[in-house]
């Protein structure tokens, strides 16, 4: 009878009025300049090492070097492919007159999103998601929510929708703020700069047969899509914990511990193959795009996406069943 829209509006308003989103904006506004400064130091360092040499000459030398290697008969076939594409990429840099080693707003954003997806972005999501249900529980307002003439599943659904909205805005905001802030320092161009992608992981090796170069804006869109998906999965899991655990602090602790365990695991368990079924080692979906070798054998982009989807769906199922059945005793 009651449409879902007013309920979603309620939830969106409550998150806003709790000033959670402002906290996220502040975190980003403080940290991105710090990262930008760090990146600037790196760039200056590189420049110092290069001396006063013209970057065009350096790149041309590099292209020359690669061409020689490709011509060499000892070269493996798949590496030939990699060098060929890399030559094309460097050539594009020369054509567009962009220094491949100097950072710009877009490369910075690309790197920042890629590095955020494993831990930083999930933490921002937690700021919003961790107390969506447990907060109402401990404040006692859950009793008022559940005694309205509205079925419980609708109330939970409206919370999920509001959460999705905020997670989407958070991911976008992270990209926009990092582009704007770093752009002030590194310049705002670089959208058309080429990036290599199309790596495939076979076993523990990278297959380079399908690599190609795409403009950076396209790479960024793909990256943001994956980061958004990972964040949504974290949001769903945080929501489940929020439904199951009434204490906000305990819920937050559980989620933090799990996420940090993920980063520890990726550094430790390269030989324990079954660890790949944990959701937290699958969150770094962006790294597949840029072709880094996965921490555990058997991890591929499609495996990670399916794995994360299964975790998310299971958590949604558990949340709804528990939320709809549970007696509200206090």
């Amino acid at each position: 009878m009651i449409k879902i829209y007013p309920l979603v509006r309620n939830e969106v308003l409550k998150i806003w009025k709790k000033r959670r989103f402002i906290v996220i904006v502040l975190i980003l506004a403080v940290l991105i300049p710090i990262f930008t400064y760090a990146q600037l130091r790196v760039a200056l360092n590189v420049q110092k090492q290069m001396g006063t040499e013209d970057w065009r000459i350096v790149v041309q030398q590099q292209i020359q070097d690669y061409e020689n290697r490709v011509g060499s008969p000892r070269m493996q076939e798949e590496w030939k492919r990699w060098y060929t594409v890399e030559i094309q990429r460097l050539q594009l840099h020369l054509d567009q007159n962009i220094d491949p080693n100097s950072p710009n707003g877009v490369t910075f954003t690309n790197q920042f999103v890629a590095n955020s997806v494993g831990l930083f972005l999930p933490l921002l999501v937690l700021v919003i998601a961790a107390d969506l249900v447990s907060g109402e529980h401990s404040a006692g307002t859950l009793k008022l929510l559940l005694t309205r003439p509205i079925k419980r599943w609708k109330i939970l659904l409206s919370k999920y929708i509001a959460l999705t909205i905020y997670v989407s805005i958070t991911v976008l905001l992270l990209a926009i703020m990092s582009y704007l802030i770093s752009g002030i320092v590194f310049g705002f161009n670089g959208w058309m700069q080429p990036v290599l992608t199309g790596f495939e992981v076979i076993g523990s090796d990278l297959n380079l047969n399908n690599i190609n170069s795409i403009p950076q804006w396209q790479f960024l869109v793909m990256e943001l899509g994956l980061a958004w998906f990972s964040s949504l999965v974290v949001a769903c899991l945080a929501m489940m914990i929020s439904v199951l655990v009434r204490s906000i602090a305990a819920g937050m602790g559980i989620m933090l511990a799990t996420l940090i365990a993920g980063t520890i695991l990726t550094n430790m368990v390269s030989s324990w193959e079954n660890a790949k079924y944990f959701f937290m080692v699958n969150l770094q979906t962006v790294s597949y795009l840029s072709g880094s070798v996965p921490p555990i054998e058997g991890l591929t982009l499609s495996f990670s996406l399916i794995n994360l989807s299964v975790w998310a769906l299971l958590s949604i199922f558990v949340s709804f069943v528990v939320f709809m059945k549970r007696d509200i005793l206090n």
């Binding site: 007013p6 308003l13 009025k17 929510l145 309205r148």
Partner: peptide, 17 residues
Amino acid sequence: YTYLTGWENLEHFAAML
């Protein structure tokens, strides 16, 4: 909801009826 005004609280619950 302590972080909302009285009126906002009423609007919140009115939306659920």
